[in-house]
C-alpha cells in the first residue's frame, strides 16, 4: 500500500471513530449530580441514556476522583456540570482520566448548566480564604430554586439539539413540558392552559401573588408549592451550610444564620453559642440541614432553642422518596412547610 493510501485509510478510521452518534444510538450523557440527571432524562427522553457521578446522597463538593467515574465518562457524548466551581475539586481529574476528548472543557460535549441562571451571593470586593470557602462565582446550589430547573431544562435542550439536530424539536418540546410540570407543581392546577407562567413566577418571587394562589383546586388536587410556602414569607430560618439560599429566596424565607461560622468551616462552640442567642432572640423555628451532614451540631442547637431540625435531601436520590426533580422539591416544600406549621416558635 502506498503511503498516501495508508494515510487516507487512517483518516477514514479516525473520522469514523470521532463521528457523532450513529442513527438509532442513544446519546450518552453523564451529569455531575442527580438533579441534572433527572432534568436531562426528562428533556432527552428515549433518545438519551443518562448517568450521574454523584449518587444524590453525598455532598457534591467533596467527591473523590475515583477511577470508576472516569470509566463512566469514557464513552460519554455529553458531560453536564452544575458549574460555579461546585465540582472544581474533582471535575478536571475525572475528565482527563476518562481520555474522552469530546467532553473536555470548551468542547460541545461539555455543558455548564449554570448558563442563564441568575446567581446569588456573587462576592463583591476583596475575597480571600479567611472568609472560608466562598465560591467566587456565586452560590452554586441554584438547582434548589424550582424556577432554575426550568432554565436548566432549556439549556440542556439547546445543547442536545446541537448534538443531535434530528431530534432538536422534540428536545425543545420535552423541556417545555418539563417546565410546565414544574409550573403546575408550583402554582397548582389553578394555572390555566396557555397562561404566561413567567409573569406568575416573577410576581411570586416579588411577593405580589395572592398567598392562596394555587390552593385547593375544585377537584381537590394537592396544593402547589407556592400556596404551601406563602404563609411563611419573611420567616427566619437557620441552615447548616449556605446551600439553601436559592430555596429561601424563592419562597421569601430569611436566613438568620448558619451553623457554620464561615462556609466550609466546622461549626465551632463559640459560634454556636452566639447563634443560639440569635435564634432565641429572633425565635427561629427551624434548622434546615442536608441529609449528608452530621446531626450533632443541629441537635445541640435545636435542644437549646426549641427549633426543629429539618433534615432533607438536597438532591434527587437523596432518599427513596426523592425519585425525580419534582418529587424531591415536593418533599422539601412539604417537610419544611409542615415543620414551620407545627413549630410553636
Amino acid at each position: 500500500m502506498k503511503v498516501f493510501n495508508a494515510q487516507a485509510l487512517l483518516m477514514g478510521i479516525l473520522i469514523l471513530l470521532t463521528a457523532g452518534p450513529a442513527a438509532g444510538k442513544k446519546l450518552q450523557i453523564v451529569t455531575t449530580t442527580t438533579d441534572l440527571k433527572a432534568i436531562a432524562q426528562a428533556v432527552g427522553g428515549a433518545y438519551v441514556s443518562v448517568n450521574s457521578i454523584s449518587s444524590g446522597r453525598q455532598d457534591p463538593h467533596f467527591i473523590d476522583a475515583k477511577p470508576s467515574y472516569m470509566l463512566k465518562l469514557r464513552k460519554a457524548d455529553l458531560f453536564i456540570r452544575i458549574g460555579l466551581e461546585l465540582e472544581q475539586g474533582w471535575e478536571r481529574l475525572i475528565l482527563e482520566g476518562s481520555r474522552n476528548r469530546s467532553i473536555l472543557l470548551g468542547s460541545r460535549g461539555h455543558l455548564d448548566a449554570s448558563a442563564g441562571i441568575r446567581r446569588l451571593e456573587v462576592p463583591t470586593g476583596a475575597l480571600d480564604r479567611s472568609m472560608g470557602d466562598v465560591h467566587p462565582l456565586g452560590n452554586p446550589h441554584y438547582w434548589l430554586d424550582p424556577y432554575n430547573a426550568r432554565i436548566i431544562a432549556g439549556t440542556i435542550a439547546r445543547r442536545l439539539g446541537e448534538l443531535d439536530p434530528e431530534h432538536e424539536d422534540e428536545y425543545a418540546r420535552s423541556a417545555a413540558s418539563f417546565g410546565r410540570q414544574v409550573d403546575i407543581a408550583m402554582f397548582g392546577s389553578a394555572l390555566q392552559e396557555g397562561e404566561d407562567s413567567e409573569g406568575l413566577w416573577q410576581r411570586q418571587h416579588d411577593g405580589n401573588l395572592d398567598p392562596g394562589f394555587g390552593g385547593q383546586s375544585d377537584t381537590g388536587e394537592a396544593r402547589g408549592w407556592q400556596a404551601k410556602m406563602a404563609p411563611f414569607r419573611g420567616v427566619k430560618v437557620v441552615t447548616y451550610h449556605r446551600s439553601w439560599s436559592y430555596f429561601l429566596e424563592r419562597f421569601g424565607l430569611v436566613a438568620a444564620g448558619e451553623l457554620e461560622a464561615k462556609p466550609g468551616i466546622s461549626p465551632s462552640p463559640g459560634h454556636l453559642k452566639n447563634l443560639i442567642e440569635t435564634m432565641r432572640a429572633q425565635q427561629v423555628p427551624i434548622i434546615i440541614v442536608a441529609s449528608f451532614k452530621g446531626d450533632k451540631a443541629p441537635n445541640l442547637v435545636a435542644s437549646k432553642t426549641g427549633a426543629t431540625v429539618v433534615k432533607v435531601p438536597y438532591s434527587v436520590g437523596g432518599n427513596e422518596q426523592a425519585g425525580d426533580y419534582i418529587a424531591m422539591m415536593d418533599q422539601l416544600v412539604t417537610r419544611i412547610s409542615t415543620a414551620l406549621t407545627r413549630s410553636s416558635l
Binding site: R57, Q58, D59, H61, D64, F292, K293
Partner: peptide, 11 residues
C-alpha cells in the same frame, strides 16, 4: 483500599 460512606461530611 478506601472506604467512605456516601453520606460523608466533607470526606
Amino acid at each position: 483500599l478506601k472506604w467512605q460512606p456516601l453520606a460523608n461530611d466533607q470526606g
